[in-house]
Write a protein that binds this DNA or RNA. Structure first.
Lengths: 197, 197
DNA sequence: CGTCTATTTGAATGTACTCAAAAGCGGTGG
DNA sequence: CCACCGCTTTTGAGTACATTCAAATAGACG
């Protein structure tokens, strides 16, 4: 149950067996069925979440009622409304499950305690945030400079096999295009690959 | 010379006079003339920068040779290539001055020392990063869901008077549109405001 | 099996783009 | 201080890509 999260942490910091044990003792398991909400816009978020299994989306709904997906989170990713978790203000995003999902939850007060007892975790979560920030910068550049078909190409390269798992509609929302457009992009894509082969 | 940066820090943490003094003793002053580089893509970035006066842009150049601006930094903002500063890998962005600029520079080793002597700064820089992350998320949503004229409108609302200071070409690059398009958007904008008046 | 939603396809529209040319503006050197 | 050069901004015309609206088909779920 904890192998994945421990491996995830080991990317950046090294823990002793005792530290590992202490850390995992702070985690709570949560299961969600497909379509269930994890966070709704306006909630005060008390947890940071690690995805052990399954898939979620983080999105917002604009004045016209349209959904815009900021992020997908699959196994081995962290998720949550960072803004709300850290400031204890109402969440700006809604998060729900696109598949049956299993999460490990780390509560705010547990995290504070963890920072004190095992200060390495300050470093870990800072690195996590930095990486998230950097990849967000890259996504901005892409969204401003690339046409839709290239953005799709970047997406399937960066998140291999995600496109087989997710409904087209959700990917279109993530890319900022209509489902119709993505459908056409995909059929061009297949046609071009066939030509080359 | 240090009023601005101390006020900036006071938004999130409270310092004693001694801590303020210690902190400012770590800072180095740097002046840049218009068009000078602060960071070039590929550099290893050793400093985090606070803008005391002036204006800079952070951008990257794509395969086609086109510039894409990730960020403008004016007085009271922090800037730098966060990725390079924190990982000591080559910078992904170039930063140069759009006006004569005055910076306060905080070196990596000085920051590490600061974290140890005044741990509150861990909190400060974490909050800084979080805010940057959150506003980046908002920008993604905007860039994917709004037409160019609305993005311009958001820009001038969020960064009041910036549009008077910056060349049109630079703003167009930030918004991900051509200078021609922004020029047209502006003239429509003026026309519409006149109608209403 | 039937209903509801997702996906595909087509046609018409619109927004932003490219290319081209003219006008405006700023900085430099004589 | 002015004239010139180069770069920025504006404007116009034609084009390309993505959108909207509509309708047909496919697929998922109860």
């Amino acid at each position: 149950m904890y192998e994945l999260i421990l491996k995830n942490i080991a990317r950046f910091i090294t823990l002793t067996p005792e530290e590992e044990h202490y850390f995992t003792s702070l985690l709570k398991l949560k299961k969600l069925r497909k379509k269930q909400y994890l966070v709704q816009e306006g909630d005060i978020v008390r947890y940071d979440y690690f995805v052990n299994k399954g898939c979620l989306r983080t999105y917002t709904i604009d004045e016209k009622g349209l959904e815009h997906i900021v992020q997908f989170s699959i196994e081995d990713w962290w998720t949550g409304d960072m803004y709300s978790f850290l400031t204890q203000q109402p969440a700006r995003y809604t998060i729900d499950a696109l598949e049956d999902t299993e999460l490990l939850c780390l509560e705010r007060s547990a995290l504070e305690e963890l920072y004190i007892k095992v200060p390495k975790f300050e470093r870990f979560f800072r690195l996590l945030l930095q990486n998230a920030f950097v990849s967000m910068q890259e996504r901005i550049i892409g969204s401003l400079s690339q046409p839709a078909d290239e953005r799709y190409c970047t997406f399937i390269t960066k998140y291999p096999n995600m496109e087989k798992r997710l409904p087209l509609k959700q990917i279109a929302s993530y890319l900022g295009i209509t489902p119709e457009s993505l459908s056409r992009i995909r059929s061009n894509y297949i046609r071009n690959n066939k030509k080359r082969a």
